[in-house]
Lab assay of single mutants.
Amino acid sequence: ETGKELVLALYDYQEKSPREVTMKKGDILTLLNSTNKDWWKVEVNDRQGFVPAAYVKKL
């Protein structure tokens, strides 16, 4: 879809709370919100949640 910003997972991340999502290094995720410098909201496999901003980079 146009207008979607994507990020690349630089590291594996295992969710530690229900508000977070698990990702694997190399995953491409849809970026939903990056206003917080530490935690970015992403969508992966129809799930939305937060990942550490340092673990992903914008494509």
Rank of each mutant, 00 (worst) to 15 (best):
L8C: 09
D38M: 13
L10Y: 03
V51T: 02
Q14H: 14
W40S: 02
L31P: 00
V44T: 15
E1I: 14
K41Q: 12
L10H: 04
A53K: 06
G26W: 07
L6W: 14
S17Q: 09
T30Y: 12
V51N: 00
L32W: 05
L10W: 04
V44L: 15
L32V: 13
D12V: 02
V51F: 01
K25V: 07
D27I: 04
E20L: 05
P52Y: 03
L8A: 05
K24T: 10
K25P: 03
E43H: 07
G26Y: 06
K41E: 14
T30A: 10
A54S: 15
K4D: 08
Q48D: 06
F50R: 03
M23N: 00
V51A: 03
M23I: 15
D12A: 06
K41S: 07
E20Q: 11
W40V: 06
S17H: 12
S17K: 07
D12N: 08
L8T: 08
Q14M: 15
K24L: 08
E5A: 11
S34T: 10
V7S: 02
A53Q: 06
D12F: 04
N36Y: 08
L29E: 00
N45Y: 12
W40P: 01
K58L: 14
A54P: 08
E5T: 13
E1M: 11
K16A: 11
A9W: 02
P52I: 02
V44I: 15
Q48H: 08
Y13K: 00
S34K: 08
T22L: 03
D46V: 06
P52W: 03
G49A: 03
A54L: 11
N33I: 08
L8Y: 11
D38S: 10
T2C: 14
D38Y: 15
G26L: 03
K58I: 13
Q48T: 11
D38G: 09
T2I: 14
W39Q: 02
L10I: 11
V21C: 09
K57Y: 10
D27R: 02
K37E: 10
K24E: 06
N36D: 15
D12K: 03
G26I: 01
A54W: 09
K57C: 13
L31R: 00
E5V: 13
R47K: 12
N45G: 15
E15S: 15
G49M: 05
D46T: 11
Y13W: 12
E15N: 07
E5N: 12
K37C: 10
E20R: 04
E43N: 06
D38I: 15
K24N: 08
E20G: 12
K57F: 10
P18V: 11
L8Q: 13
V7D: 00
V7F: 07
L59E: 04
P52E: 02
G49I: 04
S17V: 04
E43Y: 07
G3L: 13
K4L: 14
V56H: 00
L8D: 01
P18N: 10
W40K: 01
D12G: 06
N33A: 10
A53T: 06
K37G: 10
T35H: 11
G26S: 03
Q14W: 11
V44R: 15
K57G: 09
R47I: 08
E5H: 12
W40L: 04
L10A: 04
Q14S: 12
F50G: 01
K58F: 09
V7A: 11
T35I: 10
T30H: 09
R19C: 14
F50H: 05
T22S: 15
G26E: 02
R47Y: 05
K16T: 13
Y55F: 12
K24Q: 10
G49N: 01
K41W: 15
V51E: 01
L29G: 11
L31F: 03
G49K: 02
E1H: 13
S34W: 08
E43V: 10
S34E: 15
V44S: 13
T35Q: 12
K37R: 12
L6P: 04
P52T: 01
F50P: 00
Q48I: 15
L29I: 07
L29Q: 01
F50S: 03
N45C: 10
Y11H: 10
K25A: 14
Y55R: 05
K25L: 05
K24V: 09
V42W: 00
L10D: 02
V7T: 03
L59N: 04
